[in-house]
Amino acid sequence: MNRLTGSDGAPALAILGPEATRLVKELDRVFAGWGLAAGAEEISAPPLFPVPDLEKFDVYTNFPHLAWVAGSLDVTGEQFKPVEGRFGSGAVSEARYGLPHATCYGAYLFHEGGQVADDTLVTLVNRCFRNEDHYGGLRRLASFQMREIVALGSFPHTQEVLARFTGRIQAFAAALGIELAKVPAGDPFFRNDGGRALMQKLSPVKYEFQYGGDLAIASVNTHRNFFGERCGIRLASGEHAYTACVAFGLERWLAVLTEHFDADLDAALAAVRKAEKVTAEAAAETAEVPAAPGTAAVGAS
């Protein structure tokens, strides 16, 4: 059993019960394991960043509606005391920190100003925060956990990683008996006044894996060299690094599995373990098949 809470009674935050916690931890172990098996190194990031770090990614230009910020209380007067469950606008002195709405930002900030190999791969999990216009339990929360596998390096490397994990997500869902649709997403990732924005309109840079026609539980995202430029991440050639990421919303996977297995989370846990074994064996067999000349062994991990 989980407990949902939130301001004004909105089911915006979840305290997961023991069974749900075990299932989420297993899902995270599976997704992190995919990255580690592919050669990723795991890093850890804080749940909030200085505002300038997020501002350099155009977070407050492209996603102002989702943004949460955190600041210290102004304790010079009585206004710092909450009234009717909330602090007034004059109670916060400075909002110097921003709460990220995606996990991958930590990977780019970690490598800021550095040089990476052409085939760099990292994985990390973090709390994400989104100021949504409505909430819906585990399907749509103000704070949730997102595991990501992030590729940095050459452009072909980033695209091979996305192709590899696209296949892995689809195979894993199929083994669970879950039907997912891969659909292009229309997030305004790049500013509207640049060449990247035009390219995004011509060729989607983000695909979501949707359950039930409206719930995205995973996505694959290509950023070209946007983050490489903004963070000054370079390759040995001197070129700015390209990046891409694969993201998994853990509570959303939990919501789908809870529905699919009629709230029997022990059965869902067993199914996840079985599905991972099946897909791992299939990936290993694919890796053993020699690729045709000039092609990548997509599906190998």
Rank of each mutant, 00 (worst) to 15 (best):
H223D: 06
A142D: 06
F57G: 05
T5N: 03
E55N: 11
A280C: 04
S143F: 04
E94H: 15
L23Q: 01
V183K: 09
A181S: 12
G71H: 07
R230Q: 12
V220Q: 03
R86L: 10
S219D: 00
M1W: 00
V289I: 15
M1T: 11
A287C: 14
L4A: 03
T286Q: 12
V256F: 05
S89E: 09
T158C: 15
H223K: 04
S93C: 08
D8H: 13
D8E: 15
G6S: 07
I15C: 13
A218L: 02
L250G: 04
K206E: 10
A95M: 09
G71L: 00
A70E: 03
S143M: 11
L13F: 09
F87W: 15
A107K: 01
F226K: 00
A197W: 07
A283R: 06
H111A: 12
W34G: 03
G106L: 07
R86C: 10
G85A: 10
A32T: 14
S154F: 06
T120L: 12
N62E: 01
G238P: 12
A300I: 06
A280Y: 04
P156E: 13
A270M: 03
V246A: 04
H260W: 08
A70H: 06
E132K: 15
H157F: 10
E281S: 11
E259S: 09
L109Q: 06
E251G: 00
Q210P: 00
Q200C: 04
A291K: 14
E259D: 14
I217K: 05
T21M: 09
L36C: 08
R140K: 13
A20W: 00
E84H: 15
N62Y: 03
Q210F: 09
